[in-house]
Design a binder for these strands. Structure first.
Length: 552
RNA sequence: GCGCCCGUAGCUCAGUGGAUAGAGCGCCUGACUACGAAUCAGGAGGUCUGAGGUUCAAAUCCUCACGGGCGCACCA
């Protein structure tokens, strides 16, 4: 498809050159039309430049036809000037059918590109506080971040997935206090009422019990102090973090890097970032606090770094952490943030710029809220009340494949409703199975074919001439485009969308035409077509972290 | 009040400034005596929230209004 597009672009370009018309090759766009019946590829260039040429666009398009035909030769069977002045190109089917050979030669790697040229991308996501189980929105972030990383890799980037663990500060002490209170309870002391602001979740009881088993004697029930809280908090944080890691792994997500806030603090990263900003002249002292002059870089207000009580704000270790990302040699840094963190974008951009990095090398994407819906009713979650639906529960209820599919189906920055009822259905109403079913059907046909055929595989491109075969071929040929586009737009939702279309093209073909028939040549051609389709489904679902069953 | 995201079919959502705005679910009609009916063929269903503007061309870009969500800490 890329080749066809380039050839067409070049043909148009050279027509302009020959006729002394100036047009940037940038403006010559050759696209897959949004509707069928407008050719395989289309260009609106005549509409764009008609004015400067002082000629009606339609007439311009018509003038170009003979020369374009000559230039493009066998690649194209038809070119038409259509509508107000579009150029519509219809590709030769045998040429299109060559994708089958490409796909069969490259297998799972078909459609991958070198576009990224080995540039390094760091993508940080989830980074949930180690104070509780992962909630649903973390699942969405996990699916999106993981698939984005895979998409980048498929496009020639080196992409690392990173989880930042906030295992220092106040909340860890609070976690320690909660664990302490649960331990008291386990020893028979009633804690009533439960204090305000202390994590009420029942999962803390497990941690308390676990701690008691490992440290039966070396703590005192009667005299808790900060040291004890920190110790308990550290224990709880690591316990919960490791639990989160385990759930994420079950969800098909693994991280190359785990970065701990506590380590950064121990290495003196907060001090050194303040010092650096100070040397650059971006720090002021006012009202007993130290401020980062982030407004110089477009932030709404300046940000406190060191509070008047001498403690750092949360921003400081986080700033150090982000500076470190660039210093570790990443060319691009992507953060997937929760919806409650978008107030952070301004100051983080300011920081990156203040340190002399390029602000647009940091991309912050907001992963919007997920509402759980069942039977048209919203399933309420409340972290404060200790009642919330966890990612673990979601996985158990609907399974990994539907969960990932549903998360990836939607644009990440728009709020979504997750329809539990629909995701739970193991039937035709559930869109995940539509794609998987196509794969299972193909696998089944291939099994049957291999049982009776062991001869070398020979097939003839020209045999695939039916409209439904052509539609499937064309859809296959579009895959590299989709994959690249998904990386450019950072839009994982392009994959499920495309795979649905591919599956539809296959199902239609399959219902209409028999693959294994009396005609050996046609059979081989259709087997090859089916096999190529299976490769693309494997590739696409693989990038989404969704399984490809051979039978269902 | 200020900032960000969103507003598209009954519902959930796609939609790269281009032609007659799409998909899934739901609803209606039809298709298994050859490879898997978790499928296919077809139908109904739209003032793209509204009003201006830019453009040969706007769901898409700009301005304003309306509606929904989320942020606006010397919290983390």
């Amino acid at each position: 498809m890329d080749i066809a597009r380039e050839s067409i672009t070049r043909a148009i370009e050279s027509w302009f050159t020959a006729h002394d018309i100036h047009a940037d090759s940038e403006r010559i766009e050759v696209d897959v039309p949004s509707e069928e019946g407008h050719g395989d590829l289309t260009s609106s260039i005549c509409l764009k430049i008609a004015k400067s040429v002082r000629k009606p666009p339609r007439a311009l398009a018509e003038d170009m036809l003979p020369e374009l035909h000559k230039q493009l030769g066998e690649l194209v069977v038809d070119i038409e000037a259509a509508g107000p002045g579009f150029l519509n190109f219809t590709l030769a089917t045998p040429w299109l059918a060559e994708v089958i050979n490409d796909i069969r030669a490259q297998g799972i790697l078909y459609g991958h590109s070198r576009w990224g040229q080995g540039k390094r991308i760091l993508i940080e996501f989830v980074s949930a506080n180690p104070t509780g189980p992962l909630v649903i929105v973390s699942g969405r972030a996990a699916a999106v971040g993981d698939t984005l990383a895979r998409i980048f890799r498929a496009n020639g980037f080196i992409a690392d997935r990173e989880f930042y663990v906030n295992n220092a500060g106040n909340q860890i002490i609070k976690l320690g206090q909660a664990i302490y209170l649960r331990m008291l309870e386990l020893h028979g002391t009633k804690v009533e009422p439960w204090p305000e602001g202390i994590y009420p979740g029942e999962y803390i009881i497990d941690i308390a019990r676990n701690y008691l088993e490992k440290h039966p004697n070396d703590w005192s029930l009667s005299s808790p102090d900060e040291k004890l809280y920190v110790e308990l908090g550290d224990f709880g944080a690591e316990y919960l973090r490791s639990f989160q890691e385990q759930i994420l792994r079950r969800f098909g997500v693994e991280f190359e890097n785990w970065i701990y806030e506590k380590d950064l603090r121990n290495q003196g990263a907060p001090e050194s970032i303040i010092e650096r900003l100070g040397k650059l002249g971006w720090v002021k002292t006012e009202e007993g606090a130290k401020w980062f002059l982030s407004t110089r870089f477009g932030d709404d207000k300046d940000r406190v770094l060191v509070k008047s009580d001498g403690n750092y704000t949360y921003f400081v270790p986080d700033a150090a952490y982000h500076a470190g990302k660039f210093e570790r040699g990443y060319d691009w840094v992507i953060d997937l943030l929760g919806p409650d963190h978008h107030g952070y974008i301004g100051r983080m951009r300011a920081l990156v710029e203040a340190l002399g990095f390029k602000a647009d090398h940091l991309e912050m994407m907001i992963i919007q809220l997920v509402r759980l819906v069942r039977n048209g009713e919203v399933v309420r979650m409340s972290k404060r009340g200790g009642q919330f639906v966890t990612l673990e529960q979601l996985i158990e209820e609907v399974g990994v494949d539907p969960a990932r599919y549903f998360f990836l189906e939607r644009a990440p920055n728009t709020p979504m409703d997750f329809d539990l009822g629909l995701a739970e259905l193991k039937s035709n109403e559930n869109p995940v199975y539509y794609v998987q079913y196509a794969a299972a059907r193909i696998a089944s046909v291939l099994r049957q074919w291999r049982e009776s055929h062991h001869d070398p595989f020979v097939w003839n491109v020209d045999l695939l001439a039916e409209p439904l075969e052509r539609r499937l071929l064309f859809t296959l040929a579009r895959y590299p485009d989709v994959l690249k586009r998904a990386a450019i737009d950072k839009a994982p939702q392009y994959l499920p969308k495309y795979l649905t279309e591919l599956a539809a093209a296959f199902h239609s073909f399959y219902r209409q035409h028999r693959i294994l028939s009396e005609d050996p040549g046609l059979t081989m051609a259709r087997v090859a077509l089916s096999e190529a389709t299976l490769w693309i489904i494997r590739s696409g679902l693989g990038l989404m972290g969704i399984s490809v069953p051979e039978t269902m």
